[in-house]
Simulated scan of single mutants.
Amino acid sequence: MDEAAQRSRLLSGFAETIAQTKEKEQADRAVAETKIEAINFNFYYGTFQALRNINIRIPQNRVTAIIGPSGCGKSTFLRAINRMHDRTPGARGEGQLMLGGANIYGDIDPVKLRRRVGMVFQRPNPFVKSIYENVAYGLRVQKVNDRRILDEKVEQALRRAALWDEVKDRLHKASGTALSGGQQQRLCIARAIAVEPEVVLMDEPCSALDPIATMKIEDLIHELRANFTIVIVTHNMQQAMRVSDMTAFMLMDRTTRAGELIEFSPTDELFTNPQDRRTEDYVTGRFG
């Protein structure tokens, strides 16, 4: 082999090694930045399969929206993340659903899981307690009884939920149920984040709110992603475009009626350049 050919072979080898190193670094970075990962995850209600072979990596400190027609398994997947189906007879998850590298359906105690994964529901559900006690509820469950610490964490949570200035003068006087709908939802968000979870799940959090209250919740979601990983289910595609970094599109298989993940990508890409024809048909309004 002449010198030029040998040099070319060496350079090619170096280039291949560099490319492999970069690929490994990117893969390692993707794993490190992943907060929730589903690997061939299936979910059943008795004999009915509600989710089939879900594979997704949800990044930390980002907002991930899940969209799709009614009945496609969006809320089932969301609730599976903190095992809200545990008390439903026959409900079970199979495969792997990972939180920070530990399998939710095997390696994590459900009680500890729910401290790490907060939930905000479709309709505000404040307790018939004072505003203060609503926010302090989870902290008291965790045996936090020091008044100074409680005061500090309640104020921090209400500030993060953009509600402090509106309620600071009636924390102990007003019931959480006396607030407006939008305020109640922000109170529920404050209650969820007061215990410092790693993940906040939101199941259509604005569907029962007026446009002004919806705007406040959306602005709040933008702020919260600096501290929390947020997963939101929404029927509102414009909302998904406004608030999320990543979007997952799900559909129900017409034959098996199981929910399937069709596409998952950065939100701007999914809405402007979808890779699956079914995604394009949905986001352009051809069906759904």
Rank of each mutant, 00 (worst) to 15 (best):
R9S: 09
L10Q: 06
G13S: 06
Q20C: 13
E23L: 03
V31S: 02
A32R: 09
E33P: 10
T34S: 10
Y44E: 12
Y44D: 05
G46T: 13
F48W: 14
F48T: 13
I54T: 03
N55P: 08
V63I: 08
A65R: 06
I67Y: 06
R79T: 02
R83A: 12
G93K: 08
L97G: 05
I108S: 01
K112F: 03
G118Q: 00
A136W: 07
G138F: 00
L139F: 12
K143I: 15
I149V: 15
D151C: 05
K153H: 05
E155M: 03
A162C: 12
L171N: 01
A190M: 14
I193S: 00
A194W: 02
A194K: 01
E198Q: 00
E204S: 01
A213E: 10
M215S: 08
I217P: 08
I217T: 06
E218A: 08
H222I: 08
E223A: 12
N227Q: 13
T234V: 04
Q238I: 12
S244R: 14
M246A: 05
R257N: 09
G259C: 02
I262E: 06
I262Q: 13
P266Q: 01
D268G: 09
Q275I: 06
D281K: 14
D281R: 15
V283H: 09
V283E: 14
G285Q: 11
